[in-house]
Computed example of a mutant assay.
Amino acid sequence: MKISDKVWVVTGAGSGMGKELAIQIVGKGGRAALVDIDREALLATAAALGEGRTSVHVMSVSDAEAAAALPGAVMAAHGQVDGLINNAGIIQPFVEVEELPMSATERVMQVNFWGTLYLTKAFLPILRQRPEAHIVNVSSMGGFIPFPGQTLYGASKAAVKLLTEGLYAELKESNVRVTVVHPGAVQTKIMANSGLGSPEPALGQESPGISAAQAAREILTGIERNRFRVLVGPDARMLDKLYRLAPRWAVGFITKQMAKLRPQ
């Protein structure tokens, strides 16, 4: 589906991939309803895009009542909604399942899975009424291969993966296209936005992963080509192949790589 002349709801639009998605959507001639819990970050994104092409909606995607009210607010601002990009997400503290508090588990699931489901169900009736529409749910490479220390994050993103693939099957004959996105490492503020601090890369080291701008370009290209599945970044594409060919070996490889990152 083309981006131009369409209204796109983008969650997590205050920073990172969400901000870049909004910038590039407007750059392609679309309009963006910006959604984030961080008011100042949202206003900064809107200011960077100028007047007339965006609207600002401050809310947590994990708030079911706010999610239910959002379609009306977006319709009031733009008169139509053509696409939903469920991008907002958080990670868990870097600890194993045994050590992870249930409060942290519930928060990750609430934002990553329930937030995606709340907004999907809220907007789907409106999207069905459009000549063409698109739902894009951002999972993770952690949604198809496990990363020790991020197991519950991965479980939440695996739930997003299966939810999206099920939606694809259910909506296959409708006017609503569905895409699941699996980003690899991307340079974003997800640690800070997850309440885990903002560690700086060591002197002489570059921040790992591709830029948020490059990730957004790959996602929007996937939307324009109506792809069922978008793997973002070389690491996601490599691990997808490895996990398909030799899943047990791939899990062992990831476990060894994660062990190297732990403090000695």
Rank of each mutant, 00 (worst) to 15 (best):
K2V: 08
K2W: 12
S4G: 14
A13N: 01
G18H: 05
A22C: 03
Q24N: 05
Q24M: 01
I25V: 11
A33M: 00
A33T: 00
L34F: 11
D36F: 12
I37N: 12
A44P: 06
T45S: 10
V56Y: 08
M59A: 14
S62T: 07
D63T: 02
A68E: 09
M75D: 11
G83M: 04
I90H: 07
F94W: 15
V95W: 05
E96Q: 12
T116F: 06
L124K: 06
Q129R: 12
E132N: 02
A133T: 00
P148R: 11
Q150V: 05
G154P: 05
V160E: 10
E165A: 11
A169I: 10
L171T: 00
K172I: 08
R177F: 06
H182T: 04
G184V: 09
A185L: 15
M191L: 14
G195K: 11
L203S: 15
L203G: 12
G204W: 07
P208D: 12
I210P: 04
A212K: 03
Q214E: 15
E218F: 05
R225T: 05
V232E: 07
M238W: 07
R244M: 14
W249Y: 15
G252M: 08
T255Q: 15
M258D: 08
A259D: 05
L261M: 13
P263L: 11
